[in-house]
Design a protein around this nucleic acid. Sequence first.
DNA 1: CACAATTACCCACTTTTTCCCACAATTTCT
DNA 2: AGAAATTGTGGGAAAAAGTGGGTAATTGTG
Lengths: 152, 152
Amino acid sequence: MFRGFSSVSLDSKGRLAVPSRYRERLVGGADGALVQTLNPLDRSLWLYPLPEWEIIEAKLADLSDFDTQSRRAKQMMRGYATDCQLDTHGRILIPAELRDYAQIDKQAVILGQGNKFEIWNRTSWQTQREHWLQQLGDEQGAPAAALQSLSL
Amino acid sequence: MFRGFSSVSLDSKGRLAVPSRYRERLVGGADGALVQTLNPLDRSLWLYPLPEWEIIEAKLADLSDFDTQSRRAKQMMRGYATDCQLDTHGRILIPAELRDYAQIDKQAVILGQGNKFEIWNRTSWQTQREHWLQQLGDEQGAPAAALQSLSL
DNA sequence: CACAATTACCCACTTTTTCCCACAATTTCT
DNA sequence: AGAAATTGTGGGAAAAAGTGGGTAATTGTG
């Protein structure tokens, strides 16, 4: 399970250095093979170790093509899924298409999220974070509903 | 399984270069033999390696002629199925009929979709994508349902 | 059978990607 | 604190891929 926060930057070619504390696990498990795709729920990217991605892909394959929403989910997630490899310095190249989608140019943030990483534009992340924290803080019961069942 | 996104362009003769990362698999499995047909669900094209197409063709043959939907899908897919071959530079020629159907002229997009590729007019695809993302953003449960069944 | 149109093959050029090396910054150890 | 190792950053050059078009062969048509 991946966890933790890192501030990272992309170079002019769109390369991002994966924080070194994760590298050993990434090369050990799948020889550095990774899959990036877009996160359809937020304007950010998801980065999976290849074996983790294959689990997702299997689930996608089972969705019906005749249901429009399922078809779109397949098209988007699979369609943007891009194989990549850690280079000799532990970097990955983020394709221009995905950078555009997540509006990532230079300053980014990478979050460990269980079976994957989430990559955000740094300022988008900061504003999102503030926004969510404020929502949770509001005493409306509704937004916090999902959290009520947990004892954190 | 094919995945991933590529921006491609057609030349004046209607040829499309299949992204090189797929080529080895295409020539290895079936010596570059492919079948294109129209996608009856969206205004786009499907491109199958010949062996994959043969599986689809068998399934189509089993569909009942008494169900209107099935009959139409069968007619469309089989009727427009066109054999093609990768040329020495990894390109395929898309027949004018199919280009018209999918409104592909110069700028296109090719998406890996499991057993096949999907080829779209680039702007149609972008519109489709934005539309879908917007639907997800609206907090209506319906569009997100397809994603809920997956734990991504 | 001849002509026109389409398709296949080949060659040349441009652009992009990949691989590799060098240096800067940071951290760790002595 | 200084030195060594690790990590982060940048960029150049070779290789690969993408693009375009000319010519020959094939197919279809009148």
